[in-house]
Design a protein around this nucleic acid. Sequence first.
DNA 1: ATGAAAGCGCTAACAT
DNA 2: ATGTTAGCGCTTTCAT
Lengths: 356, 356
Amino acid sequence: MDIGTNMADLSPPAGNKNRSSVTLSDVARLAGVAPMTVSRYLNSPQTVKGATRDKVQRAIEQTGYVHNRLAGALRSNRTRLVAVVLPMVTNPLFSDTFQAISTRLAASGYQVLLGVSGHQREQEEELLEVILSRRPDGIILTGTLHTPGCRNRLRASGVPVVETWDLSPEPIDMLVGFSHEEAGREVARKLLAQGYRRFALLAVDDPRGLRRADSFLKALNEQGITDVSRHVTPGAPTLALGREGLSSVLERSMTGPAQPLAIVCTSDTIAHGVLTEAAARGLQVPYELAVMGFGDMNFAAHTFPALSTVKVDGTLIGDRAAHMLLQRLRGEEGGERLQDVGFTLVERDSTATLRR
Amino acid sequence: MDIGTNMADLSPPAGNKNRSSVTLSDVARLAGVAPMTVSRYLNSPQTVKGATRDKVQRAIEQTGYVHNRLAGALRSNRTRLVAVVLPMVTNPLFSDTFQAISTRLAASGYQVLLGVSGHQREQEEELLEVILSRRPDGIILTGTLHTPGCRNRLRASGVPVVETWDLSPEPIDMLVGFSHEEAGREVARKLLAQGYRRFALLAVDDPRGLRRADSFLKALNEQGITDVSRHVTPGAPTLALGREGLSSVLERSMTGPAQPLAIVCTSDTIAHGVLTEAAARGLQVPYELAVMGFGDMNFAAHTFPALSTVKVDGTLIGDRAAHMLLQRLRGEEGGERLQDVGFTLVERDSTATLRR
DNA sequence: ATGAAAGCGCTAACAT
DNA sequence: ATGTTAGCGCTTTCAT
């Protein structure tokens, strides 16, 4: 009746670390089996049969035992933990991806250890150290780590890594994403084909957004268009930024039905702000002003007018990333290491084909 | 799908564990000191002096050693892990809170273990089990766990718990939030004082939102207003929902300058959708239609017209929650266990005071 | 199908 | 300021 004593010991709630001191051995003793049998019951119930199984189950219920995966992980060298790194929690661009990852991992018995990388390079090394110290079974980077030191460190650690939302020329390990250069280029091509010749660019200083922006500008340049009004702002994309952005643009540029200006944004949220400011000023979109977003977030189809944008399937990215990782963790060989999920230009009402 | 079964289905050996087998003892041997000295260097560097310290540092660099907190946690009974439970990853209402929690915990050397509770009660028990099996040093619930069984279980576990975003009559342990009943009532009072007499309600079926809604309706009822058009939708609040919501409302109700209708939403996102649909229909807000949101999310001040709403400081909630928990974890006695952060009615341009 | 022994890598507790 | 000893709670491995 050691267990009775243990349970009694639980009652004084004073001490902070008065944690359920019921161990697997306690359960085993109460059930009259070996600790190993309880362990088996917990990890693969079907291998424990009939009466033994019932006894164990009853003992667990009776003691209120909670499996201690810390100890198990130490011994088995498997934590069932996957670290997921986000650049920022508040950027809704990654929400769908994160949700998909989280759901799929949970369904396979893995838990998510969250790391926020911020946008500062110094913190990165520290974050990685902290993550590796938990011995995750895998790591999913949403966005990318930037410093080469970190990338090497990660490679050296031998932990399976999936990078997402980008197509790096030198992936650390696995990769699910699309080309930001191509996306920027396609936006330029599309708007040029629709007849636009005057452009402004609204961007925040997120690294992938900047690459799209650069690629966009380069494509315009190749068509001889060089006088693009550029507004790059530090921080997160917000509606306010879009409103301020359009105001700034309009201070320098005239616009109207005869000479429509196309505002290209690196985020749907900013574009939404541009639409809002346009409405506030009574500007007719797309006749006087065209607006292009990025992401096809869930609101994009429902703005007024509906936002033309670059659709990226965040849920798909998350699903694929989790799937790839889980495949590797299951020890399956020959899984893909690289997936380009692409993007789609979605033409809605905030852009139009201009008559000549 | 049952997680227990799934876990059993996982093929056991991932085979991929090429993990840095460098241990603390290896480092100690190379540095010519006892393992305990290396441990001290890692946990409180200032206690290891001069030459010893340098030797240890060099040995760590030389070996590429990564601290194994799994083992340390097992021995010391401190994981430095805090579980944070969110109802859904994609609801931006909690983003600020989560960001604040994450930042503050990281600054104190804690890491976040994320759990998504969904809105299904059955999953809750399972989630809690999984979380407790990691022996977190603390748990922060963003939103609340619903089943009494879970609450008792949590209380029994002895793990410090902070509930947030609500003011429960029976907190599990600590609590940071505000009264949703009061918020609903104040919205009714305010709009009545401004002269509105015709109302519609747009809500999603999130439990706290419903409580605000009920309280709002009750307050109207007490003033004899009973014919409120109600639209409760399952799932997450989206812009589309707001647009559809207003359309539904307008199918049944006429509105105009003489008899303005006030649309009360349980989320800013829905309210934003209402504003959008109003703009699309050419309805003048607030003259023909008034709109009230909830949350004061970062876009609310920048919609057109600017959205009147109930401001809740999500960052403050997160900061306070993390602070409370950290205080407890530091063993400080006499910290507050309950904080009402309140809310504020923010009057912007989507509502107005009516002339009699 | 179940059990016994050993030890994962670290740190608490007690020396020195 | 540094070292020694023991053991956290589980699972691997081998035996029955």
